[in-house]
Design a binder for these strands. Structure first.
Lengths: 130, 130
DNA sequence: TAACACAGTGTTATAATATAACATATGTTA
DNA sequence: TAACATATGTTATATTATAACACTGTGTTA
């Protein structure tokens, strides 16, 4: 569960933008959006993104190189993420399905290896695009 | 199941390199490896990679921007992929677990949406690195 | 055969994504 | 206060990926 995290100025700016967005945002589009606030360089964005990912406030959609806010209020710090991605409109939804999460978190491969973390991306058409 | 696919010269060169590798390869490292064979430009690599992915001969490891040969002789053309990734040595194994694959292929989210395709990446430490 | 589509190739240029490295500042804690 | 960790600002550069255009070969099919 953890403490409420106090974010630095840049971290908060970046998080606000991602939370307000209704879809995944790319790092450089975030950058263009915050230049009026005095953030000028990609490093500043990527550093904020790294931190926000680390504390579980956002997730990276690997197949899109884009970032979304975490919608699971008590997300397990990004150890178990699953997303539904529309191949047509680019919409991304975080899936919070306890059964799925438990099933995957306890998955062992044939060699008996257990994993610390997983990321699952489903692709299809969302309701609107069907 | 499909026909045996006839590959073009460049496609075959790229596939050979990926199949011989004992881990995921990056596009530019493939490029450096084939310059002696007369392939000089990233486009040539990416075009081959795109085709090889399309026909299911290789997969992209999204979290690493790298490519591995498909080890499931009859992989369902990349509709259902799962990988085990070592966070220490970068090793990647394709997981072929029928139960897992069936479970995910038939997964419905709460809205009843079914998906065409999924990609799952597990992270942990491989045997050697443990 | 001529016309056409189609997949692949080669090439130059450029876009998009991400990190390195270094100097400075700010906040926390011993 | 000194030492330390974390964050910031900045310039430069590395890495990953695509656009655009000209060309080649192969197989239709009209």
């Amino acid at each position: 569960m953890g403490q409420a995290q106090i974010l630095s100025r840049n971290q908060q700016i970046v998080l606000d933008i991602i939370e307000k967005a209704n879809g995944p945002l790319k790092a450089y589009s975030i950058l263009f959006n915050v230049q009026k606030k005095g953030i000028n360089a990609p490093q500043q964005i990527y550093r904020a993104l790294d931190k926000l990912i680390e504390i579980g406030k956002i997730h990276k959609i690997e197949s899109k190189n884009a970032f979304v806010a975490c919608r699971n209020s008590n997300c397990e710090i990004s150890k178990a993420t699953a997303f539904s991605i529309c191949e047509s409109c680019e919409m991304v939804d975080e899936i919070s399905d306890v059964k799925l999460s438990k099933y995957l978190s306890s998955f062992n491969d044939k060699k008996g290896t257990k994993y610390k973390r997983f990321n699952l991306e489903f692709f299809g058409l969302c309701k609107k695009c069907k």
